[in-house]
């Protein structure tokens, strides 16, 4: 087991942070130990999810946003963390992590930390360790943390749960017809960015999105930010009242390669943060996420305990009967618990 000094992470030692991230990702207990030491100081960072189909320009956009926040926020620009998640190959377990290619501008700024991560078998677009990465960066003093992830399947739910603010990135001409956008992606969007505004079709895409949003949200319905809080949140009841002020997800046209529309997008991010804080949704989201994390942890731990104590032969026997349809799954469960 490696040893990681939480004080070094606090002091801004980036190698210590980097090693802690690796430890977390590798299930090395040193990672959780560092996280536990820092945890009391965390919960401050603004987590911004950036999701969308492959190639829409998420990395280019994050690059511009990070640069903008570093250069234009006075008096003290935020320290910016970036977590870029790409899928692992389900066959080899390997991964090609290429998001940094678009973030070369940011290298050399010691207050920006970029970490690529592979999803490592997690179903969604996030890895099991992504939330812990964000917490460690938060503990290391990063104020604004972007989490880039390809939007696919379960990923949408995951990123909506983890991030305070979700930016969904669309782009024209990807063959991925705007009309075909799943309702799911609209539901999680706090901000919609239509990137590649320099290309034909972007205006139309933005218009179509605005229309779809209007239909989805309508008058008097819950804003997106509240929707995924509704079920199971311990303090969900209290916050639904304050939701009346609502948040209408803006649709912003941007050209990430040129930087056009970046100031407006940055402003939307800050407005959303202010909205969350003024309505109590910030805390509600935090509570909801921690509850979900805890539940997942309990589930994994119970599963592991069960695996350790289950009799292999017995398991094989029951499995065989199940496969031969002599037992139903529920009956098999009864025999194994």
């Amino acid at each position: 087991m490696t040893r990681i000094d939480p004080d070094a992470i606090r002091r801004g030692d980036r190698l210590a942070l980097s090693r802690a991230l690796t430890a977390i990702e590798s299930n090395d207990p040193a990672g959780q130990a560092a996280l536990a030491a820092l945890f009391p100081e965390t919960g401050k960072a603004h987590l911004v999810g950036v999701t969308g189909s492959p190639g829409t320009g998420k990395s280019t956009l994050v690059n511009q946003l990070a640069r903008y926040f570093r250069q234009n926020q006075s008096p003290k620009p935020p320290k910016v963390g970036i977590i870029a998640v790409d899928p692992s190959s389900p066959f080899t377990g390997g991964a090609l992590l290429g998001d940094r290619i678009r973030m070369q501008d940011l290298i050399g700024d010691p207050e920006i930390f970029i970490r690529s991560m592979a999803s490592r078998g997690a179903l969604g677009g996030l890895s099991h360790s992504t939330a812990a990465f964000a917490t460690l960066m938060d503990g290391a003093g990063y104020d604004l943390i972007f989490i880039e992830t390809v939007g696919a399947g379960q990923a949408e739910v995951d990123i909506a749960q983890l991030a305070h603010t979700v930016i969904v990135v669309e782009a024209p001409g990807l063959g991925d017809d705007i009309q075909a956008i799943k309702a799911g992606i609209l539901e999680i969007a706090d901000i919609l960015a239509v990137n590649k505004a320099d290309l034909p079709g972007s205006e139309n895409a933005a218009r179509a999105l605005r229309m779809m949003l209007e239909m989805a949200h309508g008058k008097g319905s819950l804003p997106a930010a509240g929707k995924h809080l509704r079920s199971g949140s311990p303090i969900g009841q209290e916050v639904t009242q304050s939701l009346d002020q609502g948040w209408d997800p803006p649709v912003q046209l941007v050209t990430a390669t040129e930087g056009d529309g970046i100031p407006e997008l940055a402003e939307a991010i800050q407005s959303h943060q202010a909205y969350l804080q003024s309505t109590g949704l910030w805390q509600a989201k935090e509570a909801f996420r921690l509850q979900k994390d805890l539940e997942a942890l309990v589930r994994d731990t119970l599963m592991e305990h069960w695996r350790e104590q289950v009799d292999e032969d017995r398991f094989a026997e029951v499995l065989t009967d199940l496969v031969h349809h002599k037992l139903s799954p529920a009956e098999a469960l009864q025999l194994l618990l």
Binding site: R14, S89, T92, G94, A95, L96, G98, Q104, S116
Partner: peptide
């Protein structure tokens, strides 16, 4: 090829200075 051998490979693109390479190596551990 290294990805196919089960490794996690970070690729950073062209024209890297030694400083940029060391920075990426540090952040990516």
């Amino acid at each position: 090829a290294l990805r196919d051998a089960g490794m996690e490979v970070i690729y950073t693109g062209l024209r890297q200075t030694p400083e940029m390479i060391a920075e990426a190596a540090l952040q990516e551990d």
